[in-house]
Design a protein around this nucleic acid. Structure first.
Length: 288
DNA sequence: GAGTGAATACTCGAGGTGAA
DNA sequence: TTCACCTCGAGTATTCACTC
């Protein structure tokens, strides 16, 4: 049948050509606001190449927040109480937001607006904010579904960072990475194995000082500019290359390789660069 | 009690809208 | 332009009533 995107495999040349045709009403997404049918293009052409990430998971530091938060939250709920672990994660996500805003002046994380507003209010009134899972203290209308827990957990699972099933827990490899790379930085201000931080996250409500201090700085240090060698290797393997169970059967690894090479030469993803990528793919004999 | 199927709830991944 | 919040459809899991 004809679809919005029809692919023609040209096995002789090892390439594949995409062209547009009229929308098949059977393929149309019912009631979708996707008037141009971009979702169909993404599903047909993008998803087979990038198996783990979504259009929302554009922040590497979002994954950093998720990994460290899940590690800490698991320690607050040793009895597998999923709800309390989730609540602890929400508190951690709030804490990270304040630290990134105050220390690094970061934007572009979930909840930025409320974090900025409450920080300004706190500076005029004692310098402390309240962190908790209660709706009034969350940094989004529904932090659980619209924050990192809702948007990053599934891609992290596909990337081999989060175990399948429930409750949400890191894979052994991801947990070891957090312990090696991030926990020592937190421990400098929060005590051995960041025990004071774990204790704080386990509380129903936390009063958090957003004036410059060691604990705030320790949390912010996880989000310093640049990546260490171990971080770069880890994220390259799990996020860029799709992780150990790469659902694209190696296509994502090859795509990352040629994209990386082309972007190293060019600042922007222009039409010319895309044409070059297609030529690179043809040369590599990708087939379908 | 076991098996089946419908109804319901939940999760995930898209894009749109409106305020600032 | 950015950000927060929303809707929507598809897929999956769970619950429950019904039949044998």
């Amino acid at each position: 049948m004809a679809t919005a995107v029809t692919k023609r495999a040209t096995r002789g040349t090892g390439g594949m050509t995409f062209f547009l045709s009229a929308m098949d009403p059977r393929a149309k997404v019912k009631g979708s606001r996707d008037g141009l049918g971009a979702q169909g293009v993404w599903a047909a052409a993008g998803r087979p190449l990038i198996g783990n990430l979504t259009t929302v998971t554009s922040s590497l530091r979002g994954f950093t927040t998720l990994l460290v938060g899940l590690r800490l939250a698991a320690q607050t709920a040793a009895d597998d109480a999923a709800d309390s672990a989730a609540n602890a994660f929400l508190v951690w996500e709030q804490m990270v937001g304040y630290a990134r805003h105050v220390v690094h002046e970061h934007r572009g994380f979930f909840g930025y607006q409320r974090v900025a507003a409450r920080t300004a209010a706190a500076k005029a009134d004692g310098g402390r904010v309240r962190l908790s899972a209660h709706s009034g203290e969350q940094i989004l209308g529904n932090q659980r579904t619209d924050g990192l827990l809702g948007n990053y957990t599934a891609p992290a699972r596909v990337s081999g960072l989060v175990r399948p099933g429930f409750p949400v827990r890191l894979t052994p490899e991801a947990a070891a990475f957090v312990d090696d790379v991030y926990m020592p930085r937190l421990a400098q201000a929060w005590g051995r194995e960041a025990r004071d931080l774990v204790r704080a996250l386990g509380q129903d409500s936390v009063s958090f000082d957003v004036r410059p201090n060691q604990r705030l700085a320790a949390v912010a240090s996880l989000f310093d500019a640049g990546l260490g060698a171990a971080e770069a290797r880890f994220y390259q393997r799990h996020l860029v290359q799709g992780g150990p169970s790469d659902p694209t059967s190696g296509r994502q690894v090859r795509f990352a390789a040629i994209l990386g090479a082309r972007l190293a030469e060019s600042e922007q993803l222009s039409q010319a660069v895309i044409a070059q990528l297609a030529a690179d793919a043809d040369e590599g004999g990708w087939g379908t």
